[in-house]
């Protein structure tokens, strides 16, 4: 979409404009991407800043009020209440917190692993590269969601063990650790297989950079590998990494919600958009709003991240922006 506007009419590049300034000029022209970016910031602001503030004022997503079930929006609470009289606004916001937290942390992990693995493969090249990428191909040929389900089940007990260690020895808050140790296996399981495409992208970027003159010049000047990697290769790979990471976040939000929906993801006391949608589906006929609020926020978030990601790709990498 709006894809190659920048291809057809290349922007006037003033002398001395950096890659990033140039990309930002292009991005500003893409209204959908800017809108996506604004919505992303708004949602992050709502979930991570407004929600805790609302929490201090006494709103609680888990406080049940059975005398006030299925309240309509506006009756005491902004979005009404659910089947147990819980405040829908707080439920949707806290669900979003968890959904986003899982996706953001998993993306951070995949980016880290992908950069290291792909960077090494691409920079070293030769036989090592071939073997490393063969492994990635093989892992990519496995059914992603099934592996994630298996891994999550497999490591859940160990993660709980580690959580208990933190509580017992370092005095961490037991409640908080309990909640996080329910998320951690899912995050780790998604990241364990989610980095593969990132690894591929980074590898091809690193491999093409390796052959460029300025890297060869740096090498012939006798600069150490570490300096070449951090000064010349990494900064030039940031573009594809940022693009792909932005597009990974909505995919991970979706995986988390899918798993939670079939009952193999997030568990109470945590709740996420997937859980809320699953619960809401039960009351669809009589109280459609209980489904529609979380479903709307969920879809809006996916839209916003995808628009932003597509726009970033058009702006940072006009050549590859086809789909």
């Amino acid at each position: 979409m709006s894809t190659t506007a920048s291809l057809v009419t290349p922007p006037v590049v003033e002398k001395g404009t950096s890659l990033w300034a140039d990309a930002f000029t292009r991005l500003k022209k893409n209204k959908l991407a800017i809108l996506g970016g604004i919505v992303v910031i708004l949602i992050l602001f709502l979930c991570f800043i407004v929600t805790p503030i609302l929490g201090w004022t006494g709103l609680d997503a888990n406080a049940q009020d059975l005398s006030n079930r299925f309240a309509n929006p506006g009756q005491g609470s902004v979005l009404g209440t659910d089947q147990l009289g819980r405040d829908m606004l707080m439920r949707v916001l806290e669900g979003g917190q968890i959904s986003l937290l899982v996706a953001l942390l998993a993306t951070l992990l995949t980016a880290t692993v992908g950069i290291i693995y792909g960077g090494i493969a691409g920079y070293v090249g030769g036989r090592t590269e071939a073997i490393m990428m063969r492994i990635v191909d093989g892992l990519l040929a496995m059914p992603f969601l099934i592996i994630v389900i298996l891994l999550r089940e497999l490591i859940s007990a160990e993660v709980e063990e580690v959580g208990r260690f933190f509580v017992d020895n370092w005095g961490f808050d037991a409640d908080l650790v309990l909640r996080f140790s329910n998320l951690a296996p899912l995050i780790l399981a998604i990241a364990a297989f989610g980095w593969l495409t990132m690894g591929r992208i980074v590898r091809s970027a690193a491999a093409s950079l390796r052959r460029q003159e300025f890297v060869e010049a740096a090498r012939s000047l006798g600069l150490p590998h570490r300096r070449i990697l951090f000064r010349h290769i990494l900064p030039n790979m940031l573009g594809p990494v940022i693009i792909y990471a932005t597009l990974t976040i909505p995919a991970f939000i979706m995986y988390e919600a899918t798993l939670s929906f079939i009952g193999l993801g997030i568990e109470p006391p945590n709740s996420s958009w997937g859980i809320l949608i699953k619960e809401g589906a039960n009351f669809l006929e009589t109280r459609p709003l209980i489904l529609l609020f979380p479903a709307f926020m969920f879809s809006l978030t996916l839209f916003a991240f995808n628009f932003l990601g597509d726009g970033l790709r058009d702006a940072l990498d006009p050549k590859s922006s086809k789909d």
Partner: peptide
């Protein structure tokens, strides 16, 4: 936009 909607409005929203 329709295509993106197909990706973003996932099965478990669409199905119900």
């Amino acid at each position: 936009v329709i295509a993106l909607a197909g990706i973003c409005i996932v099965a478990f929203v669409l199905g119900p």
